[in-house]
Amino acid sequence: MSADTSALDSAVSDVATQVSDPVQERRIRATRRRHRIGVVLRYTLLTVLAGIVLFPVYMTVVNSLLPADVIVARPPTLWPEVREWNHYATAWTDGHLGLYLRTSIIVTAIITVGQVATSILAAYAFTFLDFPFRRTIFVVFLATLMVPFEVTIITNFQTISDLNWLNSYQGLAVPFLATGFGAFLLRQSFLTLPRSLEEAARLDGYGHWRFLARVVVPLSRPAIGALAVFSFLLAWNQYLWPLLIADDEQYRTVQVGLKQLSQSNLAEFPITFAGTILAALPLLILLLVFSKQLVRGLTAGAVKG
């Protein structure tokens, strides 16, 4: 057991060996037993809940491995006796998952890098530069947080269409290259840097660009990392915008590709589910590798909603 439980256990047994009084000994044994039962109950509860949370994913994996005639058979198969791993290869090639993932990765990378870059620049100006209408412009940045993207789709669709950017990477990414939230978040972080740093850098002959690149950015890595995670999730999970402006296979993101896959006929459903697992894998791997940054990004990012 963990430090906490084992310490208690051994403390109880220490006392038990020292005490000879049979009544007290019995009482101590009962406490220990109750404690053990408590632990078992807690594990049972946690395991049942984990099972419920994971069950839909488990069924997706099972269904992704079933042969086409088995998936429609009743009663439903809960454990695949025959496992058709080639469905994953089929989803990757014939289901175009490889293509969709490529588009998603490109667009997400452009948006993430773009948002981080524009936010760093804007936050630097708001924190370290003195210029007219600074407060007003900052309010303008904050005002963008009040306008949900869903409210602007009509004209944005027409703008992208007029620019001839339907079915293009720039159409998918350019509207999202700046974020008021990012500028706000990084400004908050830049403001915590001591003013003496700026003076010291000035004495060393640093200009603004060098001060930004060598001092401000390295010292604000946690906030920048949180913003990057937040931007990444937002860009990767986008559904409405790519659905509107990219109907060409070549520029379809994974999320919209799943819609395509889910409309296939029943016999192809195992491939749909294999594709779904493939679509979820990149984020799942990132979650496991960057869990700390993810938590920070999500809790910071949730401010926008």
Binding site: A50, V53, I71, Q255, L266, F273, T276, L284
Partner: peptide, 24 residues
């Protein structure tokens, strides 16, 4: 418990077809 954060709306919707699809 935190794993569903790795699912998008689209992934979650298709995953639940294993439960909600009328045939399968």
């Amino acid at each position: 418990f935190s794993s569903t954060v790795a699912t998008s709306v689209a992934v979650a919707s298709v995953v639940f077809l294993t439960l909600l699809n009328p045939q399968i």
